[in-house]
Design a protein around this nucleic acid. Structure first.
Lengths: 98, 98
DNA sequence: CGGACGAATAGATAATTGTCAATATGTCAT
DNA sequence: ATGACATATTGACAATTATCTATTCGTCCG
């Protein structure tokens, strides 16, 4: 996963509504209606947020009749976690960790 | 670390210049001049980006005479990695992973 | 078919953001 | 003190964004 993809995901998660949506999806698949209950936003606004989350690859939608069911995309999430986990803070010029 | 802090950090890393700066700092402490070399932005713009990175707590500055030296903040980074790593994708309604 | 209902799109708007040029501030060396 | 240089601040502007209302599109059921 390259920096551009990571930046896109970060940007997607940089909105607090969307971050909370990601947290909810981390618990498992949720339908749009369920998500909508949780926030004080309109349906078009939720649709907008879900689109951004889907476009960066972090979220997938399963359409079932009239309803949309959302899940986190395992591959994207794993790659993102991998990237973030690879960041280090101890590489001081001193050459010592801690 | 609560969602608001995480969203702030994500937003900070949601700009591709800033994400690349974070990657560079992951290699170790860097001075502003060194960072500036790497990007096609002006000094005030770099200053602006560093401020955003510092304000969310991800980056720390060490002022030494005329120069600023930046590092990643270990505590914040660790808390952030911890939060992100805690996200899961396999919590489908089915109740099965994979 | 036709109404009901969930989701998407269009259009508008206020707020935020990334960037720059110009200027100010702070620190060092002479 | 004064000039040189690193950084910060200010003010401006174009681009992006989060949100809404109004409308359209899709799917189901009677």
């Amino acid at each position: 996963m390259n920096s551009i993809d990571v930046a896109l995901i970060c940007r997607a998660m940089g909105d607090s509504n969307r971050l909370q949506i990601v947290q909810m999806l981390s618990e498992g698949e949720k339908c749009a209606c369920k998500l909508l209950e949780k926030f004080v936003i309109t349906q078009p606004t939720l649709s907008h947020h879900m689109r951004i989350l889907c476009e960066c690859g972090l979220v997938e939608v399963r359409k079932e009749g009239k309803w949309n069911h959302y899940t986190l995309n395992c591959d994207t999430l794993a790659a993102f976690i991998n990237f973030i986990s690879g960041l280090e803070c101890c590489g001081k010029d001193v050459g010592l960790c801690q």
